[in-house]
Design a protein around this nucleic acid. Sequence first.
DNA 1: AGAATCGTTCAGCTCAGCTTCAAAGAACGA
DNA 2: TCGTTCTTTGAAGCTGAGCTGAACGATTCT
Lengths: 300, 300
Amino acid sequence: MTEWDIKKLQILRTLDERGTVTATARALLMTPSAVSQQLSNLAKQVGVPLLEAHGRRVRLTGAARLLLVHADAVLAQLERADAELAAYAKGEAGEVRVGAFSTAVPALVVPAVRALRADHPGISVRVREAEAGAAYELLAAGDVDLALSLAAQAPRGRDGRFTRVTLLADPLDVALPLDHPLARADALRLADLADEPWIFGGSGPWSEITRAACEAAGFVPEQAHSAAGWEAILAMVGAGMGVALVPRMAGAGASGRAGVAMRELAERPHRHVVAAVRRGAEGSPAVSHVLAALRGAASP
Amino acid sequence: MTEWDIKKLQILRTLDERGTVTATARALLMTPSAVSQQLSNLAKQVGVPLLEAHGRRVRLTGAARLLLVHADAVLAQLERADAELAAYAKGEAGEVRVGAFSTAVPALVVPAVRALRADHPGISVRVREAEAGAAYELLAAGDVDLALSLAAQAPRGRDGRFTRVTLLADPLDVALPLDHPLARADALRLADLADEPWIFGGSGPWSEITRAACEAAGFVPEQAHSAAGWEAILAMVGAGMGVALVPRMAGAGASGRAGVAMRELAERPHRHVVAAVRRGAEGSPAVSHVLAALRGAASP
DNA sequence: AGAATCGTTCAGCTCAGCTTCAAAGAACGA
DNA sequence: TCGTTCTTTGAAGCTGAGCTGAACGATTCT
């Protein structure tokens, strides 16, 4: 018995409601003959008699009543699936898997999810943290439906598979020790820090961005230390071990804390946060709702 | 969309596991063509695309993943139904509806259910209290699967539709006021009470049994009062308003309470408690287990 | 007793779904 | 770059599950 048939269960349920084969047939727009055949067929599959003659009508056996309990559950579940799929078609249900680099989660994804809860309660978001560089591969592999990455990170391989939109320009501030002579200078320029010891990731996207910004300012930064997380970097800056470029999204809550000063730069360098979806997926209602929520979270 | 097909859901689930149409077809002993047709058919029914091309393979859309959640629930439910029906066939599952007259519930049904819980946890009993006279009609109508009644109650209409077994002979004691002169007499006979005022139900089975017992002893009882419940009858006896025949099953806890004396009679009259099932139903494993448990409760 | 209602069975037919064959697209290796 | 291989999908034909209609036995109502 591995060959369940929903129609037969529906017939059984209707028979339980109506009480007679003829009435069941009428209700389901079938002939009594068909109903009888289907039910005896079901009984054969189950291996237990489901009906027994009672006068000129039939009565459900204990096995049939037992089966009905499950049939009700199954049919209810299918009806729920039906409703949810209808909602999905209207964009009011569904799960969207979002890949985001770590600092984007509190800054963008969480506010977006909060807004979605209010506007589209049927849409759920599954977050998966991933480095900005790995985002496109997750997207291409189908492991996420929407990826947050950085404009500097080109998708590996040919583009055109993705649709990308810039969500916001995140300013890059410099973090330097509170007791540093330049901590209070006005019109601080990147070149002023050319001789400082720098702290940035040994590899990975952020390393490249820092290096590129400094080279655009005309110097090559001396990499005194390296770390992957902002916590570690800011701790080293606070200890006077060097300076670092920190996106405002990541450094927002860090200013003034633990001996660190966050300063805006005269060059106003930025990193551009982009959202990418697979080409064609922007038409999916659920994805487009999440995208809209992310836009809203980016530019309040 | 009201035409769900389990097989299609199974195909979708297998596709999710295996990842490719060809592998799915191999796993389900079908051709890739059939799998493809079934899935595009399902998508058409749902009204939302379920697959999208990804290189030379296919990927599930959000709608498909949403549908999969429900499909898993449905298939699990069906598997549970399968297991329970298999258990039912072995007599280890199922619900048996028992109709019983009121005093039989604490005396027989409850102990039987207790024993069943230990020996056959899959079998559940649904109790429905019904007068002994109405039991056969409930049984015939299919509202219960097993009825407890009294031997004196003949099934209305022709017999032969039912199988009846006597569970126990319940002695009929006489209840009389504690201060009654005969309350301490030895070898008390029913005829000694011929001139007492009698209390018994105005109609219904118990009335007949009392009347028949007295007439067998050679007198016609004077019906001084009538009541339907044992509580009321015993209260009247305790108040010295008359005497009554009380089955031991009902009067067990009443002796010595509220001025009532329960005395055994020399004639040792009995009422016979019988269990009845529809002819053929005694073969049903669940019913026969309940029947066995009732036998056990009747003769410990 | 007669009539009406009900369920089941049997023969015949229709259509969903499977298989086979073929074609087109995409990835991989030389 | 080109050819090979893997994959999916489409068209045509066939098989079988399931439906219809009629006939029959059984039961209930009048």
